[in-house]
């Protein structure tokens, strides 16, 4: 792209092509205008305001510049670090699980008939289409201590004392794992669709040739398919990381960050700061940190995958 530009500027241009370029520019900018207005007003400006006001003591009472004290406070804020730890735990567990399972499911569906693949793909996408809230009200019921289906099933299987009313979402030891399970079911829809599309594009002759040569299923996967679907894996890794970092609705609807912040995430803490404590400047500082961490993670993931792909 850069090379192309250089070439263009070296060729002598006549006045007329300048005029054409100007016309192209005018039409293009006019076509871009409606989106540009929406993007600038409701994305770009809020981002800059957010970064700017993160350096202020910003509450309902007003705004006072406080020289980055928000960031210093955040650094010392144990609940913030707890939330960051939980968020990282979610990312570290969820991302590999999502990649592994969606790839497995897509491979298992890949060589079956089309109608069946379509049905399964639809089923795995269902939690996304249904929406978080309807899915979560059912899960909340499943995990309920008194009316919960999980407790009932465990008791019927004699795996749990009959008198115990275990509160899955209210116990520190289990709450975050329940959230992980639900997060998993709401995260794999898109990866499966992407993997099915990507696996379908792998050169079939190559696979047949390898089969004739007696290559094992595992080897065909590892040496032919895996390198080919690498860009898809990379993309899925990044979007799942970003989405998991933003994990909020699950927490807000299921546990409100409890018990004693054991399920609080960075995003949930941001929300709590803004909406319960009205600490807007502090909340914005959390937002900026989240922005930086997500940026770094995406970059790191890109680098790792690229290096591995090159080997």
């Amino acid at each position: 792209m850069v090379k192309e530009k250089k070439k263009l500027s070296k060729t002598p241009t006549l006045g007329i092509s300048h005029k054409i370029q100007r016309e192209t520019n005018t039409t293009s900018y006019l076509f871009l205008l409606p989106f540009a207005i929406l993007f600038i007003s409701f994305v770009l400006i809020p981002i800059f305001i957010g970064i700017y006001t993160s350096f202020f003591d910003y509450t309902l009472k007003g705004l006072h510049f406080n020289w980055g004290k928000n960031y210093l406070d955040l650094f010392k804020d144990r609940i913030f670090w707890k939330s960051m730890g939980n968020t990282l735990l979610l990312v570290i567990v969820a991302v590999p699980c999502v990649i592994f399972f969606s790839l497995w499911a897509a491979s298992a569906l890949n060589d079956r008939n089309k109608a069946l693949t379509g049905i399964f793909r639809g089923v795995f996408y269902l939690p996304v289409v249904m929406g978080t809230v309807p899915v979560i009200v059912v899960w909340k019921w499943i995990f309920n201590a008194y009316y919960g289906i999980l407790n009932y099933l465990l008791k019927s299987a004699k795996l749990m004392p009959q008198t115990l009313r275990f509160d899955w979402l209210g116990e520190k030891s289990t709450a975050i794992w329940c959230i992980l399970l639900i997060l998993f079911t709401t995260s794999i829809g898109q990866p499966i669709v992407l993997y099915i599309a990507s696996l379908g594009d792998v050169n079939k002759n190559l696979i047949e040739a390898a089969e004739v040569d007696g290559a094992s299923r595992f080897r065909i996967f590892w040496q032919i398919k895996w390198p080919y679907i690498m860009p898809t894996t990379l993309y899925i890794g990044i979007i799942t990381t970003i989405n998991t970092f933003q994990c909020f609705s699950l927490i807000q609807l299921l546990t409100s960050g409890g018990p004693s912040y054991s399920t609080s995430t960075v995003m949930y803490y941001l929300y709590e700061m803004a909406f319960t404590h009205y600490q807007f400047g502090y909340a914005n500082a959390i937002g900026v940190i989240l922005l930086v961490v997500i940026g770094l993670f995406s970059l790191a993931e890109l680098q790792i995958m690229r290096r591995r792909g090159a080997e």
């Binding site: 039409t27 871009l32 809020p46 957010g50 909340a283 937002g287």
Partner: peptide, 28 residues
């Protein structure tokens, strides 16, 4: 259309896609 600044605009949009939506909660 090959208009001036196309690449820059495209890069800005790509960057914005990876942006966590909720970060701008308060300003919005």
């Amino acid at each position: 259309k090959k208009f001036t600044g196309r690449r820059v605009i495209f890069i800005i949009l790509i960057l914005a896609m990876a942006l966590p939506k909720q970060v701008i909660l308060v300003p919005l």
